[in-house]
Nucleic acid binder design. Structure first.
Lengths: 154, 154
DNA sequence: GCCGCATTGTATGCAAGGCAAACATTATTT
DNA sequence: AAATAATGTTTGCCTTGCATACAATGCGGC
């Protein structure tokens, strides 16, 4: 039972739950992420879309003609990772690549009709998914949570 | 460079960088998780340990003789996933499997000397990692964040 | 204008995680 | 005794993340 951590007001110095590890913020972020990920997967099992894929579809819809590199920057993903995601989305006929008028290195990305329909369906699922999440919080707490999380990733 | 984005038909009112997607709690959790994951990987590149692996080492240290199924329940992982992680840790000589005295289906897990040393080193890194994280928050905010996250994964 | 450097897309390969499905063994319940 | 549950195990597939390398293009300093 070594607890070499800032066990301030240490709950569960006994074997109740998890050891000192539950004083670690990163630990809770990981668990929360896992829970969200799992529920997301269930909610989207019909559509067969992942969080990342929906995020990318959403982003392309909001910014038609966006380039892969921009997506990587906004969603904090490696270029190679973006590549893989776009490839999958393209293979499913959700996005199309096209040339960029002013920079021949770039590819402009746009949603196809199917991609747009997929996003519409996805948004409905996201509403449900978000509801599941937000049920735990008051509106004020939700705002606070977003604000705190934003400080981590910005 | 797409510095100024077209920001075309924004469905939501206050989109600064990202479209309406940044009203989504799950989106921020994912980004925050990614940021934490990345910093963790950097911090632990010397040790060559991942978040999961450290969590598991920590848990075994806190609960010697714990079984894989228990780890799965506590850390919310699939049995097969726990299996893979334990296999890696065992291959590196950090944990040993043994028989359980009262249930022959179970395997008791214990840290080896090397595993314990690894955990000691890992804890130092975690302190640094947590500091990086907590620097963004007041103690009160940190407590609040943990409390909110706990509601998600509990 | 030219050269070096940065940017972008692309391909390849590898590690880690998540999960489903199957199977054998052992406990527990009925 | 039989059905059911729990546990460990293997196998296989998918997604993500990242490193590396390469070619084409754009840009800034000279």
């Amino acid at each position: 039972m070594l607890r070499s951590f800032p066990a301030k007001s240490a709950p569960s110095s006994d074997d109740g739950d998890i050891g000192g590890i539950d004083q670690i913020v990163g630990f809770h972020i990981r668990l929360a992420y896992g829970a969200v990920y799992r529920h997301f997967s269930e909610t989207f099992s019909d559509l067969g879309l992942t969080q990342k894929q929906v995020s990318v579809l959403w982003l392309i819809d909001d910014h038609p003609g966006i380039a892969q590199a921009d997506i990587g920057r906004r969603l904090q993903m490696d270029r190679a990772t973006v590549m893989a995601i776009i490839n999958r989305l393209q293979k499913r006929g959700f996005v199309v690549r096209g040339p960029s008028p002013d920079d021949r290195r770039r590819q402009t990305l746009k949603l196809t009709e199917a991609g747009h329909d997929g996003l519409i369906a996805a948004r409905a699922c996201i509403l449900e998914h978000e509801q599941w999440l937000k049920n735990r919080f008051t509106p004020g707490e939700t705002g606070m949570l977003i604000e705190l999380l934003r400080r981590i990733h910005e």
